[in-house]
Design a binder for these strands. Structure first.
Length: 660
RNA sequence: GCUGGCGUGGCGCAGUCCGGUAGCGCAAGCGAUUUGUAAUCGCUAGGUCGUCGGUUCGAAUCCGACCGCCAGCUCCA
């Protein structure tokens, strides 16, 4: 990491005279060892450690702790140790690139989740074919086991050292400004003459790097700023052992196997015809069933929870979006205006103003509140071309959007209701243990400070009362109010932001929403915006990846596939199909003139939960032969038993398949 | 929007570097086979090689612009 934190000094070394004041090294077995005076922590650590924590601060093994310091070893198994390993891998990558391409200018290269990257300015673009060469150069550096050494330089020395490295110089210069004092010391790590500006800590030497692999090349802006030069970023991953690297690479393959765009085609759920334009999907017949299941579930649970369903059009006059503030802030992300008889219309990017107008359609009393207006509202946002990503980021999508309009004193109670509904709905899909974030006022915002403070207070007290643990994301709120987001982990551990709950005092103000109170005075209500699934498209994409296409039975487009062995079994299969449909199940019969093997394969590829092969034996006995989508096969299952178990599985929205 | 890569029948790909008017597998249609749990065999049809323009005797192949897709960055009410 670069200078984002205080420099960790290597020589605070307070004089130590007494044995009892010597640094104490805490060992994993809970015993302690004392270090001799002036001794670096590395010399006393058990082998295999890559860094140490001294009084809670991560340092490298050459660090000489002062008296009374508490020293703990850090191994690569420790998350911090893994970070150190990857940070060192980033250095080795940069060193290798500089060796192969002497004109390369290196920028920054931090460890990240699962790996590391380094940004370069290069004379010409790299291709994936260059990666093996770079990896080879990295391996040479690892083989020569170069020690990492830490030095502190004065500002001018550092500028001189990085004379040919404009990015490094910029960092040194800005560091200086930030610290507000000339002559600030700058930390540099070197190995074999190659040097990088860096706080460390690092591995003792390059030989301890473990298993690594370069993964991809991409462009990235210097300092993440669109107006600054585009650099070449090389991504890699690094792990303590080859097994862990292999595991990780398998996880990547698994994620690719689950890609919703691939499965969407394979399962014939949806497509993005280029004729429609970027980010606009059509749902196919099977996708239509899946989606209807989601919609029905969501609508019904909202009705049960006291929401009322409303419906709004897809376009509205420009004036509406001026009042809401969307035009001022998001005009370039809205589809362009269409003009009709001198009036500008816009396609809606949001449903809120419509729900506000439902509220305002007549004079409201405190008795009407809370009013919970709900709509599966289809909106269009002109997302920048490069950000569109299948269903996960589309340009046309349907939000499970609701607005709760209530008195301020009802707000916390309403928020608690939304949290509760969120957990119930998400649990239905197997999502639990959310990571919750409270986002506060962003730089560009409407509404005064007092409004924001009250809104944040409400969210905070609802969170506190709910018992949910949450973190605070400063400045990440919506322009009209703070929000609470729920992120959930999928089946392979990836975190997705699904639910968003936003508190809004601003729109009621802008739209002059009012109600008459018990006191016969006019009051302003507050509004909660919330989408629990987020959008049906995005949520569907996440579900497809979460389940890897193996939907719970209630969501599966076709739940049972009947495979007659020969033409003469069609009639019996037809009879079974009628009984299954009577039980509310979705059934298909494969009457193609193919072998049983081929038909079974077909059903398997389509991930149909249950396949029943119907032949002479079944026609005679009345039993069925059940094959599930994992390939488990059971013959002689009573048909009534099958129908009973499977309809039960579907109606309870079970996450577990029945086994026979 | 930016950087890089890619675009060849419905799908997955070869051919592009070194210009000489397209090929494979799956899917589809037809025929034979009537089949017992992940691909039966044969035949047939299907492509102005993303679009437009340029270079050339000749362009899928070389050049340019545009459109679309992919990865990352930036953004995300």
């Amino acid at each position: 990491m670069l200078h984002t934190q205080e420099v960790v000094g290597s020589n605070p070394a307070a004089p130590t005279n007494y044995h009892s004041h010597m640094p104490r090294l805490a060992l994993p077995d809970a015993s302690t060892v004392e270090l001799a005076e002036g001794e670096p922590v590395g010399s006393a650590l058990p082998p295999g450690n890559v860094a140490a924590r001294v009084d809670g601060e991560l340092v490298d093994l050459s660090f000489v702790p002062g008296a009374d310091a508490k020293v703990e070893p850090v191994s690569p198994a420790d998350p911090d140790g893994l970070h150190v390993l990857r940070h060192s891998a980033a250095h080795v990558l940069a060193q290798a690139v500089c060796k192969l391409i002497p004109e390369a200018r290196y920028a920054i290269g931090p460890p990240i989740e699962d790996g590391f990257y380094y940004d370069f300015e290069l004379p010409e673009a790299l291709t994936p074919d260059d990666m093996p060469r770079i990896e080879d150069a990295m391996r040479e550096i690892v083989a020569s086991d170069q020690p990492f050494s830490r030095t502190e330089l004065g500002r001018d020395e550092a500028l001189e050292l990085f004379a040919g490295q404009p990015f490094k110089r910029e960092i040194v210069e800005q560091l200086d400004e930030a610290e507000g004092a000339a002559g600030e010391r700058v930390v540099v790590y070197r190995n074999d003459g190659w040097a990088d500006l860096c706080l460390g800590p690092h591995l003792p030497s390059t030989g301890r790097l473990g298993a690594f692999k370069l993964l991809s090349v991409a462009g990235a802006y210097w300092r993440g700023d669109e107006s600054r030069p585009m650099l070449t970023r090389i991504y890699g991953t690094a792990w303590p052992s080859q097994e862990e690297l292999d595991d990780y690479l398998h996880r990547l393959e698994e994620a690719e196997r689950r890609d919703h765009r691939r499965l969407g085609r394979q399962l014939d759920l949806f497509s993005f015809p280029p004729e429609l334009g970027t980010g606009l999907a059509v749902w196919h017949q099977r996708g239509g069933i899946f989606r209807k299941q989601l919609e029905d579930y969501v609508r019904n649970i909202h009705l049960e929870r006291g929401y009322e369903i409303v419906q709004s059009p897809h376009i509205a006059r420009g004036k509406l979006w001026e009042t809401s503030g969307h035009l001022a802030k998001f005009r370039e992300l809205m589809y362009p205006a269409m003009e009709d008889e001198g009036t500008e219309y816009f396609v809606k990017p949001m449903n809120c103003p419509f729900h506000v107008l439902v509220y305002k359609s007549k004079t409201r009393s405190y008795r009407d509140l809370p009013m919970r207006l709900s709509e599966l509202g289809t909106v269009y946002r002109h997302e920048r071309a490069g950000v569109v990503h299948g269903l996960l980021r589309a340009r046309g999508f349907t939000q499970d959007d609701s607005h709760i309009i209530c008195r301020e004193d009802q707000l916390v109670e309403e928020l608690l209701g939304v949290f509760d509904l969120t957990l119930e709905i998400q649990r239905t899909f197997g999502f639990a243990d959310p990571v919750v974030a409270l986002s506060t006022k962003p730089g560009e915002a409407i509404g005064d400070e007092a409004m924001w403070a009250r809104a944040i207070d409400a969210l905070r007290s609802a969170l506190d009362r709910s018992g949910l643990t949450y973190e605070v994301a400063e400045g990440e709120g919506a322009f009209y109010g703070p929000k609470v987001d729920f992120h959930f982990r999928d089946a392979i551990g990836r975190l997705w932001q699904l639910t968003t709950i936003q508190c809004d005092f601003a729109l009621p103000e802008r739209f002059e929403m009012e109600y008459t109170g018990e006191d016969n005075e006019r009051h302003r209500p507050v509004m909660v915006h919330r989408a629990i699934l987020g959008s049906l498209e995005r949520f569907s994409g996440v579900l497809i990846e979460h389940y890897a296409g193996d939907f719970p039975l209630w969501l599966a487009p076709e739940q049972v596939r009947l495979v007659p062995v020969a033409d003469r079994h069609f009639e019996h299969a037809q009879g079974l199909a009628v009984r299954l449909r009577d039980a509310g199940l979705r059934v298909g019969i494969d009457k193609s003139k193919e072998t049983v093997g081929k038909k079974v394969r077909e059903a398997q590829v389509m991930k149909i939960p249950y396949t029943l092969v119907v032949g002479d034996k079944e026609a005679e006995s009345g039993d069925v032969s059940v094959r599930d989508r994992d390939g488990n096969e059971t013959r002689g299952v009573s048909f009534d038993e099958f129908v009973r178990r499977v309809s039960d599985e579907a109606s309870t929205r079970s996450l577990e398949s029945s086994s026979f």
